[in-house]
Design a protein around this nucleic acid. Structure first.
Lengths: 208, 208
DNA sequence: GGTTAACTGGACACGACGTCCAGTTATTCC
DNA sequence: GGAATAACTGGACGTCGTGTCCAGTTAACC
């Protein structure tokens, strides 16, 4: 069975690396890197939502079973590629300088968070489109992290009673929407941040 | 060619009916209805995003070419089914009673709009998931209509300068998100409306 | 350096896609 | 009312992607 390791949990679903304690074979590591590089190029070159496992395998010069051994679908590969960037923001949220890190007002922190995520969207839109499109978006670890963060900010601002608000405030960061604003409607990242800034400011600074 | 009529514009992409001036043949009308009924049942029964043209044809007892003659994909069928409901809201926005129709404050009208769309999402979630998921969402006529409406409300409230805000305020109504809130997070429609109400109120009533 | 376990690539069957063609049926015109 | 015409229909076809399996190969460990 090609993906027995995946099913048995001997391979990390997120990074595609063997779980801790196991040593990755040299040839396996080499191929993993080839796959990631090839996938990144493909996602950037064409519509990321229509990239297939076949294509990635061909582009990487690797058999299909080799791909399935680590990643169940193209979205998982995009998630692995994105992980590094999102993790960096997560660290700054927890222990970075204000206003992204602790210390600033909830409104300012939300604005800084919006800016940081717009930055990720702007720099890695193909990856986010592939990894966080549709229902997948809500199941990634990153989404859970953002939820917790916003939830904390809302609590600080005295808005903790409204369960849904957290996700409603994350909705404007959907990659699909960002692509539409940038490429269909022709807006600049600055214009998008302007809109988000108003949103954050209005929701978190004045409330009756 | 099976879908020559579709390509030549002799068939309405939205409803699947012949363009005005043409008379629909009796057997064609019968089959169109069979297709719509079968599709609605199918969308409701299983994950609407994975329903295929094959299945719909089988369920309707109709050949595949008959399907492709009118609809290019399952999403188009869902759009046709949704159209009626969305059109009703659109009429009320233009000439219905306040607060949905003209006459109320922008904030109250936005809240009423949110409530109306949550109602559609609640009653026809499978259809909206199929019709308005991913990038398709922004290309439907309905989305354009909602945009225009919100844009008007923002202008009335003196927020017309911020281009992106319109779409940011529509983002929380994405069907994918609604499904997540309802079925993954277990929120009630009332809780979701509560969140939207805060959003609308905060953005549209007080601004510096 | 031999044994063991992991890794790899290609083959396989399946299902969905979108198109095409030939037969059938409704509408139009006289 | 019946023939001519155009529209409609269903099944077949080739293509592509999927996910799995197997047998050969290669690296790690003792």
């Amino acid at each position: 069975m090609a993906s027995a390791d995946l099913r048995d949990g001997r391979i990390d679903l997120l990074t595609g690396q063997p779980v801790s304690g196991r040593v990755e074979r040299a040839d396996a590591a080499r191929n993993r890197r080839k796959v990631l590089m090839a996938a990144q190029a493909l996602f950037a070159r064409r519509d990321p939502r229509s990239v297939t496992m076949d294509e990635i395998a061909r582009e990487a010069g690797v058999g299909r079973a080799t791909l399935y051994r680590r990643y169940p679908d193209p979205a998982a590969i995009a998630t692995a590629l994105l992980d590094e960037h999102e993790r960096r923001v997560q660290e700054q949220l927890l222990s970075g300088d204000p206003p992204l890190g602790p210390g600033a007002s909830p409104a300012d922190r939300l604005i800084a968070f919006y800016e940081a995520l717009v930055d990720i969207l702007e720099q890695h839109l193909p990856l986010t489109l592939s990894a966080e499109t549709g229902p997948r978006r809500f199941q990634t670890g990153a989404y859970g992290f953002w939820r917790t963060h916003i939830s904390t900010l809302l609590a600080e601002a005295g808005l903790s009673a409204t369960e849904a608000l957290v996700d409603l405030l994350l909705a404007p960061l959907a990659p699909d929407l960002y692509e539409h604003l940038r490429h269909q409607r022709g807006l600049t990242p600055e214009q998008i941040v302007d809109g988000l800034r108003i949103l954050a400011h209005q929701v978190l600074t004045t409330h009756p």
